[in-house]
Computed example of a mutant assay.
Amino acid sequence: MPRSPSTDKAGLTSVRNALSVLNLLSDGVELRVVDVARSLGVAVSTAHRLMATLVEEGFLRQSPNSRRYLVGPAALRLGRAVSYEQTLRRFARPYLQTLCRELNETINLQILVGADVYFLLSAEDRHQLRVAQREGSRLPARATAGGKVLLAAIGDPVSAGWGSDMRIELTQVRSNGYAVNLSDVDDSVRAIAVPVREPDGECLAALSLAAPTVRLPDVRLPLVLTALQRAATEIGRDYAGKWSPTG
């Protein structure tokens, strides 16, 4: 049965109110239900239901002493995720720029978002014929070299619903420590990617080079792979040494 416009409007209002509550708490203050009701211009009973839902989902918590509401663990995790991306981007940028100048090809830093790979950062080369940077875009993870590296890093992909061919390929990627992609997205582009790991082995991201197929023949792959692995190690070490998710 199709939803009515009034139902959709009510749902959007609830979402807007929930976001407003989180904004009210963003400065670390504690709020009572009546404070929230007054700020949103709604009945106390409505504010109470909203707060109870946010507590249930982990976005708010209630102080055992004052019974006021504070930011919950789910909201804190979301904030740390944003901080993680910003921090990783900041630490990785000079390495991508150096690698781009050294190899004169487009370099990408990617993270996994669901079944997609998200291009967190790119450095584009200056060739007239080049692979354009994809910073801020998403592609299916299984169709990119960086995505395959990240999928291989999370373990057995059976639960993700991949077929046997993909499982075999990801097992090989995990064994090799890198992935090479040809023609999965663009038949004129070839890419090679390696994992970016912290010293303890935790995979942070994938570092990849993408180039026109004619400029990335098999004979060039060992040199590119060595440069990518060196930069990935430096990024992981730099990130681990200068930032803590609880800091």
Rank of each mutant, 00 (worst) to 15 (best):
Q128R: 13
Q128L: 14
Q128E: 14
L129H: 13
R130I: 08
R130Q: 14
V131P: 01
Q133Y: 10
R134W: 13
R134G: 03
R134K: 12
E135V: 09
E135D: 08
S137I: 01
S137K: 09
R138D: 02
R138Y: 06
L139I: 11
L139C: 07
P140A: 14
P140I: 13
A141R: 07
A141Y: 09
R142Y: 06
A143W: 00
T144I: 10
A145D: 11
A145H: 07
A145M: 07
G146K: 09
G147S: 09
K148R: 15
K148V: 04
V149S: 08
L151N: 01
L151V: 01
A153D: 02
A153Y: 04
A153S: 11
A153F: 03
I154P: 00
I154L: 04
G155T: 05
G155W: 03
G155N: 11
G155P: 06
G155R: 00
P157F: 05
P157W: 01
V158E: 13
S159F: 06
S159A: 08
W162L: 10
W162Q: 01
G163K: 00
G163M: 04
S164T: 15
D165S: 11
M166V: 11
M166G: 00
M166R: 10
M166Y: 11
R167A: 07
I168D: 14
E169L: 13
E169V: 07
E169I: 05
L170C: 07
L170Y: 05
T171E: 15
T171W: 10
Q172K: 15
